[in-house]
Design a protein around this nucleic acid. Structure first.
Lengths: 209, 209, 209, 209
DNA sequence: AATGAATGAGGTTTCATTCAT
DNA sequence: TATGAATGAAACCTCATTCAT
């Protein structure tokens, strides 16, 4: 029993190693630079071995994203559950959780953006597409519920909560987008200032006095 | 003289054809489908001939982006020049110009976002990187000047104009980003509602009463 | 003693299971689909275990062929032993035994033809080649003895019995060959008519009035 | 003009070289030993270049077979056109043409048998399958017409000409089949004696006195 | 100036076989 | 004895780029 369990743990570990490696390469060199060869090298296994853990290359990446999106889901779930207690800072709390996710898992965040926007998703087998789709939906739905609470309880301006939820999320999305393109172009970024001012502007625009 | 000039014009024409072809392929089939073969086919020249007009494939793409960003630059330049006259609606006017660019040249908009963030940029030779960098800078700088005018003339809240300029731009960026990823995932989008509410929120948050 | 014996029986059983599995896969999915993985799966053992029973993949296949050729050998042996009693229908009896083998074990028949002609044989180690060679020789030699009896006792035309034996056997071989290729190409086959007319023609040509 | 034509000739030549190489490898080492690498080596071109002449590996082989089957078709066509003149030796003439084809193009003959019987044909793209199918049909149809003439004009015994045509063809087929398996197993073959006796037996059985 | 032809470098995947447990 | 895990070696195919004409 112990043996079987240990084996499973080891296998899970290797899976995780591979996913991390893929993400690291993504971060350092970009999507098209991710090759099985390089992933294998970092994990110190053979290319063939990777196929023991994953059906193919895409699966590595998709799983990495989906897995780590759960961290984000948890953050949002937590906020939703504590919405009463945190109602006075609802928008700020939400914003802080966006930041938390981005700063703790920047590669995941970026990769996930990349995937969702790239045509790559077309050529994905059905199951992987479904997998990534679901993971995204969960996040959207949680955000929506949080904002809905804010609107219904009169904390936020009166408006369609779904739309407002998109406005807030896209504000953050855009900031990261820009930050990333600055990194790529090796321009100097002002991410922190931007994100703080954005929160201030949003607060003025969204929160009722 | 006439001959030399004509030759140059013809060469320029061919260059433009190639860049258009690249963009068209991007739009129809996505980034990874852009191959020299396909570009050549659309231009009705041979693959080898493309190397007469461009040093390599990257040059085609970069030039395409840079070229087509000019439309956007013009829109912003126009606003800046008429800032006095339009001061009462400065934010809205800016926003409308974002929309104008996106709706008139959605492929270009998307493609240029894509390219700017893509890892493609990494392995670019210095000169190309500089080229794309400058083109981006022009847009940024114009936005900055417009917002700076708004802040200095007391139209907008007091804050760092550069940062505010980023906040506004990234709001729009994020909306498009999300819209695009919805298209890819074939979910239903609410682009118009989102963009309108965003403007409303921004107005409340940014414009002084 | 008992234990050792039982072990040997079990090992033999496993060997047989593996060979059957290989043949079954051949029948259902064709030669190139035979993989150690699939064989192991059907036997409900691990891939690695197969190497306890066989030195390598080829050995499984060769042994399968050799084993299953024995049914045919028996049919021919029986005819040879009863040659006196059946002398008036010797050719027909032989032909019927060909048909018997083919119709009772069509997969085996096809598989063994396939393997014998396949390039697989080329790279075989000496011992395996010898093994398959001997198995084939037994069949040939029995056919030869039967025909020789027919020629020597004046039933058949005067000729080299070995050669005649080949003529008869190859007539049948060709019919099956054609039938099989028709199946593959999903054309309509006339196997029965062909095989009956072939016997008639052979009788006229071979049997003395 | 001359240039274009020369280029085409050269390209055709290269195609032919590749097909020959593939056949030669088939002959020497068997189907599964045919690799693009080896073909390229023999042609003294790069692997990649082969893809200029053929869409993929299968196309090389199929084309080789189909191309060279035309030689056989021509032989049969010629006999059919001269059936009146050659009526007294119709069966023998047919048989000689079988021999002619086999001896002049033994690899083609074998490869064609191999392909038609192998499951490989299943995984072939539609166009290639059609191509090989048609080429086979032409041969069958010509044989049929020749035998039909023999039966209708009273040269041969009364029977279904299609079936008789199969009996004769399969007799030959079987002989080659056996010969090949002997080569593979490095047994001594008696191909000539067998084929001559087969003709004699067939004559007695088929041709009316 | 224009291009057909050629290719090197690289990527993904499969599978028989070995080995440590 | 039995097996999960690991891997080397290969195979197919694509594409940006160069070169001879």
């Amino acid at each position: 029993m112990g043996i079987i369990e240990r084996r499973k743990r080891e296998k899970d570990l290797r899976r995780e190693l591979a996913m991390d490696a893929a993400m690291a390469i993504y971060k350092e060199e970009g999507y098209h630079a991710i090759t099985m060869e390089k992933i294998a090298e970092r994990c110190e296994v053979s290319r063939a071995s990777l196929y023991l853990y994953f059906k193919n290359k895409d699966e590595i990446l998709i799983n990495a994203i989906v897995d780590q999106t759960e961290y984000f889901t948890d953050l949002l779930q937590d906020l939703y559950e504590n919405r009463e207690r945190l109602k006075d800072n609802l928008l700020k709390e939400l914003w802080l959780r966006f930041i938390d996710f981005y700063e703790n898992e920047p590669e995941t965040f970026n990769a996930s953006l990349y995937f969702q926007n790239s045509e790559m998703i077309f050529n994905l087998p059905e199951d992987l597409r479904k997998s990534i789709n679901e993971s995204g939906s969960k996040v959207v739905s949680l955000q929506h519920k949080i904002i809905e609470y804010g609107v219904k309880s009169g904390l936020f301006i009166e408006c369609n909560p779904m739309t407002l939820s998109e406005v807030i999320w896209t504000s953050f999305l855009g900031i990261i987008q820009l930050e990333k393109s600055k990194q790529v172009l090796s321009r100097k970024g002002h991410y922190k200032a931007t994100r703080d001012l954005a929160l201030e502007v949003l607060s003025r625009g969204v929160v009722k006095k």
